[in-house]
């Protein structure tokens, strides 16, 4: 049985791939069509959707029955937000993430390049 976190991810994938708003039953159908759990309970999908709504990833349209759901932002926009934080040059971001290698200056490239394949150059 998938964890709630994993379910949140596949539900978001369905919403991101959808053309328009979806009801929870439509979401459940698509999850099962994608090879998901055949016994996935409708209430579980609703729980996952309300958790996503709380985190502000999903907007719910309550004007009609059944309620319709849609992604607040596209996958690309969220990815851009994430990578902005990871690659962002803002120094205060250092407090959040320790990256394996930080910003690289153009002037360093030649030296690094020489490190990796300079031996080939030497034989010239």
């Amino acid at each position: 049985m998938a964890t709630l976190g994993e379910l949140e991810r596949v539900v978001m994938d369905v919403l991101w791939d959808a053309d328009g708003d979806l009801s929870s039953n439509e979401i459940r159908d698509r999850l099962q069509a994608n090879g998901g759990d055949r016994n996935l309970a409708a209430t579980t999908v609703l729980t996952v959707l309300s958790r996503l709504e709380q985190k502000d990833f999903v907007r719910r349209d309550r004007a009609q029955r059944p309620h319709l759901y849609r992604a607040v932002m596209s996958r690309e926009a969220h990815m851009a937000e994430l990578m902005h934080e990871v690659l962002g040059s803002a120094p205060d971001r250092k407090a959040v993430l320790a990256r394996f290698v930080g910003q690289v200056q153009p002037s360093d490239v030649a030296a690094l390049r020489a490190l990796l394949d300079g031996a080939g150059d030497r034989t010239r």
Partner: peptide
Amino acid sequence: IARVALGLD
């Protein structure tokens, strides 16, 4: 380290 630094660039 060198590969990642170069790849980032």
